[in-house]
Design a protein around this nucleic acid. Structure first.
Lengths: 253, 253
DNA sequence: TTATATATGATTATCTATGATCGTTACAAG
DNA sequence: CTTGTAACGATCATAGATAATCATATATAA
């Protein structure tokens, strides 16, 4: 995207919601905060919007809403920390496979501002998030769209996955149990996850503590298929030991 | 091609998509980047477009920028009428394959409010448009994301397509010529289009008059591979005859 | 024909846009 | 008020784009 285009869209973005944070713009447009500040400065000099500490507001909105910085998403806090740990595992130019799910989605967001990578995913949501990130080679597995999760499933997805071998898989789940392993509520998704595991040299499971010791409908794989588990500190010491004894590395975010 | 001619086409190219990179133009017109820059400089001095670092944008693109992809329609009217005709060809519960492109995108929009259908597409833009339409079974071919068109290309897409046989294919194009057939500026897209044709029982080409009698880089198929052409009334009588004689049905929107 | 003009591509030094770093400044919670 | 945190702006390095220059090929003029 050209500088002018980006600035124009940035202006539109700000106007649509009356305000925008620098960090938000940086994420949305996939450029550094330094660049966002430069852009906003130019737009302000052109009289098109107004800078504030932390972001920008439209000229009309001056005085309407002075502080907007605390609008943070606490909901995804643990997931964000897990995602951050996961991002640390990814090296430049690697080929990573991202499962669909909220935690992997957080991870995808982090990858918008990073070194060149190839990203394969069956998550339509992640594809949308990353579609303009030019440093990323983006590959969709294809498949039938499941609206509940915006993931791509079915034989097409599985067949697509069978054509590749990726460096690292980041898997999401709805249940992790020491005996039952990884489970998910939908059969088709479970099958895709299995195909993903077959296509990966290394499997990393992202799973916040709310899903630990749970089982759901469809079995994906035993715990032993997981090389690394990233979870948060809500995990019990018992379970932690059990998992480690199974030969799975555990990272606490 | 003469210099004047090339500059004229370059201007048209930029206007059609609101933007173009120097590298892109260089590739498309088969001249060096130095020449593209000289051309763009002259066009800018003539006030016909605006230079940016790395390329050029139309003057209209500066100022009001509607949601990104939608506004790059120069012949939006014709395309909508063509899309409407195309929609009439689709029957309930059919399986249709939609190519990526602005005209097929218009068609996709029309299908949001219609009878149940299965839609297969390699257009990420169409997938986004239809992702919440519950009466549609949506299938992505998969593949590598091409940002210029938000289409999915590459071996994955081709392999995915090889797994199916759809009732009707709605194909877009950048050039239709009586002798050269259907052409498109990008090799990978051409290959995907070929795979689509192989996967379809019936091929319908959507093509507004601005693309008639044009050839671009990569050959997709001869005219004879097209069962039905839908175009607008801008087509010349000569060409119309020629196409009909080739055994292709023509619908004028 | 020869001479000149024009268009083009290659080469390269320069410029621009960007991201990273770091000391400074502004804000809000004590 | 003080203080910790986050945003800021200045500065620098770098990749990529640009403009200037030159060589060449083709077209035009003499």
């Amino acid at each position: 995207m050209f500088t002018e285009e980006r600035q124009q869209q940035m202006l539109q973005y700000v106007q649509e919601r009356q305000r925008a944070a620098v960090s938000e713009l940086s994420e949305t447009f996939g450029v550094s905060e330094a660049t966002v500040r430069r852009d906003l400065k130019e737009l302000e000099e052109a009289g098109l919007l107004r800078r504030t500490h932390g972001g920008a507001i439209t000229r009309e909105a001056v005085g309407v809403e002075p502080s907007f910085l605390e609008k943070r998403d606490r909901f995804a806090d643990e997931k964000q920390r897990i995602a951050k740990e996961a991002a640390c595992l990814i090296e430049k130019n690697e080929i990573v496979l991202l499962d669909s799910g909220t935690t992997t989605y957080q991870l995808a967001k982090l990858l918008k501002r990073r070194s060149p990578l190839t990203i394969v995913t069956n998550s339509h949501q992640i594809l949308q998030e990353l579609q303009w990130a030019e440093h990323l080679e983006l590959i969709s597995t294809g498949g039938t769209v499941r609206r509940e999760t915006l993931s791509l499933v079915g034989p097409l997805a599985e067949r697509g996955l069978s054509m590749m071998k990726v460096d690292k898989l980041f898997l999401g789940t709805n249940g992790l149990h020491p005996e039952e392993g990884v489970t998910t509520p939908h059969l088709l998704e479970a099958q895709v996850k299995q195909a993903m595991i077959r296509s990966a040299k290394e499997v990393v499971l992202l799973c916040d503590h709310s899903k630990l010791n749970k089982t759901t409908f469809a079995k994906v794989c035993p715990l032993s298929a997981i090389d690394t588990l990233i979870t948060d500190r809500g995990i019990s010491a018992d379970l932690l030991d059990q998992i480690k004894n199974d030969g799975t590395d555990v990272i606490l975010a």
